[in-house]
Amino acid sequence: MTGVTGRGRTRWGLFAAIIALPALVLAGLAVFAVRFATSDHPLGGAPEKVPCAEALAFGGARLPAGAYDAECAVRSWQDTDYEARFRMPREDVRDWLEATYPVAPAPKTEYCYPDSVDLCLHLEFQEGSADYAGLFPGLSDPGFGAYAADVDVTYEGPDRALVRFSAFTT
């Protein structure tokens, strides 16, 4: 009687599959837990370096004349956040902001976050209409897509300013 399984005999293949399934699920959960605990970006969206022209264009701006030490990055997962950091002559900061966003409110010198910032500007572009885009020259440029932009300026002495620019979709 070869090939016949009698009563009381175990079907080892089926038994092994039933036992292996929970073990595989637990192993997968363990790998996910370790990655989540050890990564700054476990679900993706780590910052990637990008050209500063791309980062600033996303928020309707351009790198100002005289800017140096520029570093730019994008983080994208569910939302997109472009960041630019550069230095420029302190005396040119307000002129650059006014030329970039001519109908924006004046930059604030108080109630900025963090408190160490000397000058800040927050803009929201959610209107998105053609008339609204006409108010800000850069909004009609290719690459614009931000919902809002923040500009924070820290004066690093009498001649130099550190500018942090962020344009994002939420």
Rank of each mutant, 00 (worst) to 15 (best):
W77E: 09
D79G: 12
T80N: 04
T80I: 06
D81W: 02
D81M: 08
D81G: 03
Y82K: 01
Y82V: 03
E83F: 09
E83V: 13
A84W: 08
R85A: 06
R85V: 04
R85I: 00
F86S: 04
F86H: 04
R87M: 07
M88W: 08
M88K: 02
M88Y: 07
M88I: 00
P89L: 03
P89W: 01
P89V: 05
P89S: 07
R90W: 12
R90Y: 10
E91F: 06
D92R: 14
D92F: 02
V93F: 07
V93I: 09
V93N: 09
R94M: 08
D95P: 00
W96M: 05
W96Y: 08
W96H: 14
W96K: 12
L97E: 04
L97K: 14
E98L: 12
E98K: 15
A99Q: 13
A99W: 06
T100N: 09
T100C: 05
T100W: 03
Y101M: 02
Y101E: 01
Y101T: 06
Y101D: 02
Y101K: 00
Y101V: 01
V103H: 07
V103I: 09
A104T: 13
P105R: 13
P105L: 07
A106D: 12
A106P: 02
A106Q: 15
P107F: 01
P107S: 12
P107Q: 07
K108F: 00
K108H: 08
K108S: 12
K108Y: 03
T109K: 15
E110P: 03
E110Q: 14
E110H: 10
Y111P: 00
C112F: 11
C112A: 11
C112S: 08
C112T: 01
Y113S: 13
P114G: 02
P114V: 11
D115V: 02
D115F: 11
S116N: 12
S116Y: 15
S116I: 14
V117K: 05
V117I: 15
D118I: 06
D118N: 15
D118F: 06
D118S: 13
L119Y: 12
L119R: 09
L119E: 15
L119V: 04
C120V: 00
C120T: 02
C120R: 08
C120H: 08
C120K: 06
C120A: 13
C120G: 13
C120N: 03
L121H: 10
L121I: 05
H122F: 15
H122C: 04
H122Y: 14
H122E: 00
H122M: 01
L123T: 02
L123K: 05
E124K: 10
E124C: 00
E124W: 10
E124L: 04
E124V: 09
F125R: 10
F125L: 02
F125E: 00
F125I: 04
Q126M: 11
Q126D: 09
E127I: 12
E127L: 11
E127D: 14
G128S: 10
G128Q: 14
G128N: 13
S129R: 10
S129A: 03
S129C: 10
